[in-house]
């Protein structure tokens, strides 16, 4: 589970940067609904990833203890979180642009792939050194 914690920390570090940039652009540019939608989508996908990491840790701990894991990976909660975002874009179209919301949704999943390759590269490097 240390590998999962390491990836989670890297994921948070890597996704805070674009989120901060989106918020900065939301403040300084006139395209406020676009960047608000982007930040909303990216924030929801970050929440989804962190929630998934938490559930994986719980399942892993239960499985390591030798008992049968009863909880799932929380797919319904993650879907409802996205539906909540869609609802916000429905309710406040003058604040959030739905196109940028849809663009922001896959952001953290792309970052997850980058983190995975990054971790693999570091592991390979440490194996070569050690």
């Amino acid at each position: 589970m240390e590998a999962l914690d390491l990836r989670r920390r890297r994921m948070i570090t890597l996704s805070i940067i674009p989120l901060f940039i989106f918020l900065l652009l939301w403040i300084i540019t006139p395209y406020r609904p676009f960047f608000a939608g982007l930040a909303l989508g990216a924030g929801i996908s970050l929440c989804n990833i962190l929630y998934l990491a938490r559930r994986i840790r719980i399942i892993g701990e239960v499985a390591a203890a030798g008992s049968q894991p009863r909880s799932g990976t929380g797919l319904l909660t993650r879907i409802l979180l996205v539906v909540f975002g869609v609802g916000l874009t429905f309710r406040y179209p003058e604040w959030f642009d739905y196109r940028s919301f849809l663009l922001g949704l896959p952001m953290c999943y792309v970052l997850l792939i980058i983190v995975e390759y990054w971790s693999k590269g570091k592991e390979r490097l440490s194996n070569r050194k050690g």
Partner: peptide, 22 residues
Amino acid sequence: KLFSQAMITLGLVEALPIISIA
């Protein structure tokens, strides 16, 4: 080792229906 890898991939696989539902 395989468990954490499989779960990360599970998250990536489940991203598709989540985004598609939106």
